[in-house]
Design a protein around this nucleic acid. Structure first.
Lengths: 224, 224
DNA sequence: AATTACAGTATGACCATACTGTTTTTTCCT
DNA sequence: AGGAAAAAACAGTATGGTCATACTGTAATT
């Protein structure tokens, strides 16, 4: 149920005198906060309404500002896509980095990691927003340019966390890499069906099956 | 390289006298052909430009007609979604039904089926169009209503073809079903990355790896 | 320390454009 | 001739981007 992004929120009033202590803000800082605020609103909008239905008016309404402010910080509507994508990927990496290690060994830990990635990355609001951008990139060359690097980074998320906490069988490194990437693809394919087809717990059961399959690749040693 | 849909194309002139033989067409038949023609144009548009950029004007331009004709056959723009989705699913089923059986036994056949589903269904123009509708369904309740049944049917495609031509190990039926469904999810997840991340042959190699994994579930018996 | 000049930031009105859906008119087929 | 199909004209609305204007913070000058 975590919904709020951590950055770019908080007290956004311009006045110094709103609270007792003087809190000087440089123009640069003021500008940066506004950009973050707009990006947050943008991500929230494409998650809720889809990229197609996200107009500048929608974004500014969500952010509580006027259209002029948006177009001051982003000379054209689409110039926000890149910043948004980068933030989404960064957030994802941070999330998987913070998944606690399960005490019952690699197998249990892997299971936990998969469920966490599913919940907190793939089908999270941020994950949904990311998939909106990915879909748009298919037919919009401009979006595609912005998404190429974020898309590559996103695909490495699972390998990133797996390599540093799971002892994989030696000698099968290449195959393991492919396997992890495919697991991620599976989760994303599942995500596309969550809105329409099955119940939420169904997908968790499917993930359990997936884990049983991958677990064979793990050494049976102690946790790291 | 097959691009053209099979239905709804061909000679679409209204005149009888264009060729020698009289070819009487009832009003109903005339109307039906126009609908098919519009649906074809619609699918082509969302594949090329994405659903968001597909206006009625785009569709009618693609079909070579005027907006009036479209709105005569579909009282509102969105009323075409349902017909389009059903046709896409039907086409997919027909395609997988027509995949020839490989002579070298179940393992080779499975590999061929997977590659065919990848090429002719998942990343085909029709598959792309379908994924556009699926993505739109996430945030548009109207589209979601239209897509619910087609989405379920689409998910059964792989099981449909698998059950009638592959001898799976007895006793593991449930697990096999899940496995097939997950394979399909994997392919769809891969598809989302084709536009941005890797080269085409990369995905075929990944599919080969996938087949090797699934092949363990197959009996080593002769082809059906 | 107070005033003034200046640059960055935000606003709301404006415009051209494109879209959907309705209505009216014309064309075509049986 | 009569009715369905297609085209064309129309109205209403929303969008993206520009612009003149006002506001806020920073630096220079008195």
């Amino acid at each position: 149920m975590r919904r709020r992004l951590s950055s770019g929120e908080g007290d956004l009033t311009d006045k110094h005198q709103t609270d007792g202590k003087a809190r000087p803000r440089t123009q640069a800082e003021r500008s940066r906060q506004m950009r973050e605020r707009i990006i947050t609103a943008f991500i929230s909008c494409i998650e809720k309404y889809g990229l197609a239905e996200t107009s500048v008016s929608q974004i500014t309404k969500e952010a509580g500002i006027t259209r002029g402010a948006y177009l001051h910080h982003f000379k054209a509507k689409h110039l926000i896509y890149k910043d948004a994508a980068l933030r989404l990927v960064s957030d994802s990496f941070r999330k998987v980095s913070n998944i606690p290690v399960h005490p019952d060994g690699p197998a249990a830990d892997l299971k936990q990691v998969l469920h966490c990635i599913w919940e907190d990355v793939v089908i999270s609001p941020e994950g949904r927003a990311f998939s909106e951008l990915m879909q748009a990139a298919r037919t919009d060359e401009l979006v595609a340019q912005y998404m190429r690097r974020p898309a590559l980074r996103a695909l490495r998320i699972f390998g990133y966390v797996a390599k540093r906490r799971f002892p994989f069988r030696a000698g099968s490194k290449m195959k393991t890499n492919d396997f992890l990437r495919m697991t991620q693809w599976t989760l994303r394919g599942m995500a596309a069906d969550t809105a329409l087809v099955y119940q939420a717990d169904f997908f968790h059961r499917q993930i359990d099956l997936l884990v049983d399959d991958i677990a064979d690749e793990l050494e049976t040693g102690a946790p790291i």
